[in-house]
Write a protein that binds this DNA or RNA. Structure first.
Lengths: 150, 150
DNA sequence: CGCTTGCTTGGAGTGCACTCCAAGGTTCTA
DNA sequence: TAGAACCTTGGAGTGCACTCCAAGCAAGCG
């Protein structure tokens, strides 16, 4: 049970995660900034709103991120690219914390996201057609004015 | 010269524009709201920030949109779908107002946008791969737990 | 030990793209 | 011609996703 959620969480060896040094498993916030490209502000904010699963602390209270946090941040980065609202990501994180009985809901959430992404790709391909049309027009107009000039 | 910019502006018969009644050429703001799905607020705001080419007014000062405005709004809608910042659209509108000598710059702007759209599509396809992976995982886990149960 | 650099917090500020408001003038329908 | 529905304006407000700040504690180095 536990092992299944863990695998779900870290996504195993699936998609490539953020780069990181080998054989290490705790990082300061600035190291995570360097790996992920996020700012320290954003990392703290993610934690505050419940988007991080629970970050370890040093004995003096400083954050010590682990590899699983980097994996999670890599996945969050993907979700961010989909345009998913942060509130929905937080919802997904909550479902993860609640355990295996939320499998179905998590799957649905991801499927809804996938539908949105597919729609978005189709929209973008539509805009691409318009852009091609316009750009060809400008190209044609310039070619025409050049041939007039020649 | 003029005719070329006009064609560029309205995009001629190219991509399909917002639906509208045939054989009419002036519309109140609420009609344009119905055709475009934008709000009246947004239409006025577009005009204020210089994103509309110049909307006619009735003798009492109310807006009377024309077909070319609907064409332009359809194009702006496409640009909006690309994720282009409004400021860049305003820039494009300015270039249009400045006349034919801005052809090259307009073409560049559109080409840069097209590059962005292509990048965005590639990103989204990357996220799709991750989503597929995760969704398959949930599907597999559920199938496994069902077979255990059986 | 002192110095610099890094980390902590709650709360306030930013930029974008709208979104709404109040107060009043206009247009249409009965 | 009355009333409802629609239109006008400048300016203020909203929601999202950060982004920054001040004040103070922590860590590593010569």
């Amino acid at each position: 049970m536990e092992s299944i959620s863990a695998r779900t969480d870290t996504c195993a060896s699936g998609p490539k995660a953020h780069p990181r040094p080998e054989g290490q498993d705790h990082y300061t916030i600035s190291e995570v900034v360097a790996f992920t490209g996020l700012t320290a502000h954003t990392l703290r904010w993610y934690e505050r709103i419940g988007l991080m699963p629970h970050v370890d602390r040093s004995h003096t209270g400083q954050r010590r991120f682990r590899n699983r946090d980097l994996d999670w941040l890599a996945f969050v980065g993907k979700l961010r690219l989909t345009g998913m609202p942060v509130a929905d990501m937080v919802r997904y994180a909550e479902l993860l914390r609640e355990g295996d009985h939320t499998f179905a809901e998590r799957q649905e959430l991801l499927e809804a996201t996938r539908r949105d992404v597919r729609t978005r790709i189709a929209e973008l391909q539509g805009t691409l057609a318009v852009l091609d049309f316009k750009i060809d027009f400008y190209g044609g107009a310039r070619a025409a004015s050049e041939s007039e000039r020649v």
